[in-house]
Amino acid sequence: MPVMTYIEAISRGLWEEMERDESVFLLGEDIGTYGGAFKVTKGFLERFGENRVIDTVIAESAIVGAAIGAALVGLKPIAEMQFADFVTNAFTQLVNNAAKTFFRWNIPLPMVVRLPSGGKIHGGPFHSVNPEAWFFHVPGLKIVAPATPYDAKGLIKAAIRDPNPVLYIEHKFLYRNIRGDVPDIDYVLPIGSADVKRIGNDITLITYGSMLHWSLKAAERLYAEYGTEVEIVDLRTLMPLDKTTIFESVKKTGKVLIVHEDTVTGGIGAEISALINENLFEYLDAPIIRVGALDAPVPYSPPLEDYFLPDENKIYNALKILKEY
């Protein structure tokens, strides 16, 4: 099986869908001639032409709005935000137009907005955001956030084929730091389905995106030192949440750690914690703990960014508290 980086897997998935379906097209800033700020779409213009790989003006609201319009009449646009941070410029288009279209009009809206997100790349306050919680609260937007190359390819294909607006959150730190097996076949992963990335009976760790990799390391360390078995649920999709997989794991372990790179207050973890409290209170043997970034903008200078972000140590320490509870 071919081994690919995370970014190659996204690129491969996009390419296959463009080959497969002529109604799929790309629009965004610098994605054509230049091949994208991160080179996700390198070579696409040469293969698919400027009608399907559209270099646009710098106008995020127009990019997302135009994707909505094209999707309304049956095309399958994929809009790239150069950095997830810039999607704030398209907020009205997403939360008022895209999110409310099916509810109001019962019309399919098959569009994807790609959001290169996350920190640990020294991007500072305007190139490092984790945008998921802004949109998690908006009914009508699906959100996926793959952590591995395998999931990245399977989910970009699923997002493109979904008849609803899907925000595809791709973590920039993972782009070239994570490699994995990616089958050279046409496979599509279901949206709304979490994946247990490590099996265990003692503690449930719920995470997604970049934090999966630090969580796996922390869990191995805890196991090596204490023999504690952590089960890691990789959400993969944030909206709709896979409550079944979350609940099954929590029922088994009775202890829960939720980890995300996004800031803690009002994050995805808060909702998951509330769901577990409402549904599985009697199964719990310890308070639910959340690990996330500090409630502040992402800082620029490396020592500050390292202090700000969750990491293997912070996850390990939280796991240890739960183990001892």
Partner: peptide, 8 residues
């Protein structure tokens, strides 16, 4: 922008 998308 949505009208522009239909035009696109």
């Amino acid at each position: 922008p949505v009208a522009a998308g239909v035009a696109l």
